[in-house]
């Protein structure tokens, strides 16, 4: 069943892996912060990704510029996520089961609404004109759009890193992740911080959805395919760790692309293997800290 790869194929796969890893990072960075900071198992995170992608598809259909569409979609999802967090999730603070059911409930509703509005057929918008085609280097062709995704993901990662490590807001987030009750006691408005992080996470997921649409395409079921991937990234990298999310995302990106090329039947299952290993050997995640 295993397929041999030529080195040219391997290079292309590596680029795809980086691109897919970049997408996964955009998806799971928010998930990781929401999970790490708010302890909310946000089971609608995959739905944010899918709904965002559908928004993007429609905006592109109306002739909106690709990047504007991605930003608008992210903005729309930030508003939706913010409303759900502020008015429903907020009331369930600290109650795991109700939070799970609520987010799961919304995930189902979003899935069905998407099916109603965008039908069951897959949509695959084209990449922005300036990024179609490929650049040639070292005798190989590099697809421009995938490189662009990687660049955007790296830019977002740097922006998030600066935000978390260098700003006052970031200091508050770190304090909140480390010890929410104490953060509250020292006067950090944890509640507003929560909403902000939730909106940011939703926006990033939707943005990733639009970015991913031209090469993943958008179809029903994409939500629950992406959600476990975000989950794996967080379990791999450790909750609340951006570096962990970055490393975990690229690891998954590589596993997925090379897995698909070499063991097509098992590509999806292979994705879970590192998670199982980490759970057994290092349950706090690669970059997570042990909580006493």
């Amino acid at each position: 069943m295993m397929t041999q790869l030529t080195s040219a194929q391997a290079v292309i796969l590596a680029i795809n892996s980086f691109a897919f890893g970049g997408l996964l990072f955009l998806l799971s960075a928010g998930f990781s912060l929401i999970f790490g900071l708010m302890r909310i198992p946000n089971l609608m995170h995959g739905s944010f990704f899918m709904l965002g992608a559908y928004f993007g598809v429609s905006l592109l259909d109306w002739g909106v510029n690709f990047w504007v569409a991605a930003l608008l979609s992210g903005l729309a999802m930030a508003v939706i996520g913010g409303i759900i967090e502020r008015f429903l999730l907020r009331r369930l603070e600290g109650q795991v089961l109700p939070q799970v059911l609520l987010t799961l409930g919304f995930a189902f509703i979003i899935a069905d609404i998407c099916l109603m509005v965008w039908t069951g057929d897959p949509w695959q918008p084209t990449a922005p004109p300036s990024l179609r085609g490929a650049v040639q280097a070292f005798g190989l062709f590099f697809p421009l759009y995938r490189l662009a995704i990687l660049a955007v993901a790296v830019a977002v990662a740097i922006a998030l890193w600066i935000m978390v490590d260098w700003t006052r807001l970031g200091a508050m987030i770190r304090a909140g992740v480390d010890d929410p009750p104490i953060a509250r006691v020292v006067g950090i408005k944890v509640s507003q911080l929560f909403t902000l992080i939730f909106c940011l996470g939703a926006a990033l997921a939707a943005f990733a959805g639009v970015m991913g649409a031209p090469f993943l395409s958008v179809y029903p079921g994409l939500d629950f395919e992406m959600l476990p991937l975000a989950l794996i990234v967080v379990i791999l990298g450790g909750t609340g760790s951006l570096l962990g999310a970055l490393v975990g995302s690229f690891l998954l990106g590589f596993l997925y692309n090379f897995g698909q090329a070499m063991f097509p039947d098992l590509a999806y299952v292979i994705l879970f293997l590192p998670m199982l290993l980490v759970l057994v050997l290092r349950p706090q995640g690669l970059f997570g800290r042990v909580v006493a």
């Binding site: 429903l88 369930l92 109700p98 059911l101 609520l102 799961l104 409930g105 919304f106 995930a107 189902f108 509703i109 979003i110 899935a111 069905d112 609404i113 099916l115 109603m116």
Partner: peptide, 14 residues
């Protein structure tokens, strides 16, 4: 629309 109903029930219950 079973999924929609399922989701709504969850939210109503919660």
């Amino acid at each position: 629309r079973w999924n929609l109903v399922l989701g709504l029930i969850f939210i109503v219950i919660i």
